[in-house]
Design a protein around this nucleic acid. Structure first.
Ligand code: MN
Ligand code: MN
Ligand code: ZN
Ligand code: ZN
Lengths: 135, 135
DNA sequence: TTTATAGTTTATAACGATTCTAAAGTGAAA
DNA sequence: TTTCACTTTAGAATCGTTATAAACTATAAA
């Protein structure tokens, strides 16, 4: 992802390109593979990777702005912390509870043959498949 | 479910049949259909249904003992509250985010045709299918 | 019966993730 | 320079959950 795209992510999230926000955006979006993280893990990685300091509130605010703009998604994982995902396409996950690690599964790698009808008056918004792993 | 079964649930959870625990167990297990709840919702329903008072700690402790004994399961739902489920068999869920309501799907109502191989050295423990609903 | 004792309930404190707040900082425009 | 809207930040507040410790209860030994 090129630098211009970083600024586009920020602009389309309603965020001015401040030092902290650019660092966060670069860290999240300037990579090839999907990245799954919690606010806490992101903070630790940012501290290691950069020389800047980040208040937790800044990270929360920035991550939420990206999420609201559709540049990040949220993955539901057992436990108290919220997991975010740079992969915003429709996809599924392996979850390794030993390492608390999420692994992407492309939507086309899961084929569902049979699914019940949605309850009366309701429609299916999306289907999430979550595969728990063991050793 | 007969009264004797209530006492069996308690016994097999390592819980003596005190007034509060019997009320909780009856409320949870003396019903035909699956019941999904949070500790908060259970507390409100207990207060309505019975004349006893329940400290939150008692409900937490009792629910956790049932869960540890395998008489309740936990369902992962977006949001901060923990959802419990009287259905401990392998099954799936519809989730209606309008009403925060979970609806059971029998395991045999979902047929998965294709699934990726588990990552190196890992095995699949179980598969959870979560179907989000909209109006 | 009393007493001992193990287990239980309860109110409240502590905890941890997240959100809120208000003060200090920043930077572009006037 | 001064202004002013926006940003960062530290710390307070919130909320679900867990821990603690004191009061209570039931059973059984003395
Ligand atoms: Mn979660
Ligand atoms: Mn949850
Ligand atoms: Zn993902
Ligand atoms: Zn269920």
């Amino acid at each position: 992802m090129k630098k211009i795209d970083i600024f586009k992510k920020l602009r389309t999230s309603g965020l001015r390109p401040t030092k902290q926000r650019v660092e966060i955006a670069k860290f999240l979006f300037d990579r090839d593979k999907t990245f799954h993280f919690t606010v806490e893990s992101l903070n630790k990685l940012l501290e290691k990777k950069t020389t800047s300091k980040f208040a937790l509130a800044t990270i929360y605010n920035t991550v939420h702005a990206f999420k609201d703009a559709g540049h990040l998604s949220e993955v539901e994982v057992r436990g108290k912390k919220t997991y975010f995902d740079t992969n915003v396409s429709n996809h599924h996950h392996f979850y390794d509870s030993e390492t608390s690690e999420l692994i992407d599964i492309n939507a086309n790698e899961v084929v569902i043959q049979k699914i019940p009808k949605a309850p009366n008056g309701k429609k299916i918004k999306n289907i999430e498949v979550f595969i728990n792993l063991k050793n």
